[in-house]
Simulated scan of single mutants.
Amino acid sequence: MFATIRLILVTLVGVLLGLASAWWAVGNIRFDEGSSIGQWSLLDDGAKANPYEAVRVARRGGGGLGPSEGVELITEVDADGKPLEASCAYLIAGPMPQGVLWTLTISDRDGHLPDNPARRFGFTSLDAMTFGPSRQVRISIGREVRPGDFVATTGLSSLRLTLRLYSPTLATRAPGRDQLPSVTLLGCDEGKPS
Rank of each mutant, 00 (worst) to 15 (best):
F131W: 09
G132C: 10
G132V: 09
G132D: 09
G132E: 11
G132T: 09
G132A: 09
G132W: 12
P133D: 15
P133S: 14
S134I: 09
S134N: 15
R135L: 13
R135C: 11
Q136T: 15
Q136C: 05
Q136Y: 06
Q136N: 12
R138F: 03
R138Q: 13
R138A: 14
I139T: 02
I139P: 01
I139H: 01
I139D: 00
I139W: 03
S140W: 03
S140L: 07
I141Q: 00
G142R: 00
R143H: 12
R143I: 12
R143V: 11
R143F: 04
R143L: 15
E144M: 09
E144C: 05
V145R: 13
R146S: 08
R146Y: 08
R146A: 10
P147C: 02
P147W: 00
P147L: 02
P147H: 03
P147D: 09
P147K: 02
G148D: 07
G148A: 04
G148L: 03
G148C: 08
G148W: 02
D149K: 00
D149L: 06
F150W: 13
V151Q: 01
V151W: 09
V151R: 00
A152I: 02
A152V: 06
T153R: 00
T153P: 04
T154L: 11
T154K: 05
G155I: 04
G155W: 06
L156K: 03
L156R: 06
L156E: 07
S157G: 15
S157F: 05
S157H: 13
S157N: 13
S157K: 11
S157L: 13
S158N: 01
S158T: 15
S158F: 04
S158L: 03
L159F: 04
R160T: 15
R160K: 14
R160H: 09
L161M: 14
T162H: 05
T162M: 08
T162Y: 00
T162A: 10
L163Q: 06
L163P: 05
L163R: 07
R164F: 01
R164Q: 13
R164D: 08
R164M: 11
L165R: 04
Y166Q: 14
Y166H: 12
Y166E: 13
S167Y: 05
S167F: 01
S167I: 08
S167P: 05
S167W: 03
P168K: 11
T169F: 09
T169W: 12
T169Q: 15
L170M: 12
L170N: 08
L170K: 12
A171T: 07
A171C: 09
A171Y: 10
R173P: 02
R173L: 13
A174D: 09
A174W: 05
P175Y: 01
P175T: 03
G176L: 12
G176T: 15
G176Y: 04
R177T: 14
R177Y: 01
D178R: 08
D178P: 03
D178Y: 07
